[in-house]
Amino acid sequence: MTFALQLSIAGIATGSVYALIALGIVLIYKCSGVVNFAQGAYAMLGAYVTYALLRVGLPAFAAVLLGMVLMAGIGVLTERLALRVMLKAPIVSIMMVTLGLLIFLRAFCLAIWGPDQIAFPQIFPAGAIDVAGIYLTYNYIAAFVLATTLSIAFLCFYRFTSIGLMQRCAADNSRAALAIGIHVSNQVSIAWAASAALAGLGGVLLATLGGLSLGISDIGLIAFPVIVVGGLDSLIGALIAGFLLGMLEAFTEGMLTPGLEDILRRFTTIQSVGALQQVIPYALLVLMLLVRPQGIFGRSGTERV
């Protein structure tokens, strides 16, 4: 029981960060119809950039904030330079552009920071509190609190401010939005800036939890199935999807994998099930797509089947 609780806590903490990153993917999809495979790369780049800023000697708070600002700039840059030109290109081309971006950014970080995992500087206090036998490290608490607050703040922003209203309008029907005088392409840029910044912070939080490496960019592809399960055009769905993914990973790693390996070792020559936690979401996705393609929270009619 304690073990399960411990797993849930780890799951919820990483899940909240995933939710932050997933939010960006959904935001970009809603606003510009682009499926951004490079979101994980934004997270990775954000973490590396923040790391570099910390190394220069900036205080943690300033480094994280500046990192997010820089990432927002990079988000706008990619949208203006690459995606805007592709407006009417075939969907496979748009997917390939974001994949190309992912490859490029990974290689860029590899060239500068090398392939090895780097210990991320402590930006939150070390140590843990012990609640009824369950350890809560400050890293986990900070990641959870920061990611959740930011996600909710963002949702409120999107829901209640005038920019948020324009965003929703542009996302809902860009033609109508244009007609009533909303500068749609600016709204798309804002969406890219916001998602890149959110992803950047997500990357920093992931780095504080599990170290800084190129592997952070994998989250972009791993989060994908869960986002589709939540519904590609639902922000709430993305939040829930993020938490779900975190839990799924934690429980697969902590419980399913050891159990399954036990059984397999007994009856077959297979010794290990490997990184099962990375595949379970995809298996879930395939089932989901066959049953309810628009996702749990997505609007039906997003794709007519």
């Binding site: 969907i91 997917m95 199935p225 995809y282 298996a283 996705l285 797509l289 066959l290 393609p293």
Partner: peptide
């Protein structure tokens, strides 16, 4: 046979990982 476009593409991505 049931999915189109983007959603099918994502299902093949899943197949690739699996």
């Amino acid at each position: 046979l049931r999915l189109r476009g983007l959603y099918f593409a994502i299902s093949t991505l899943a197949a690739q990982f699996i």
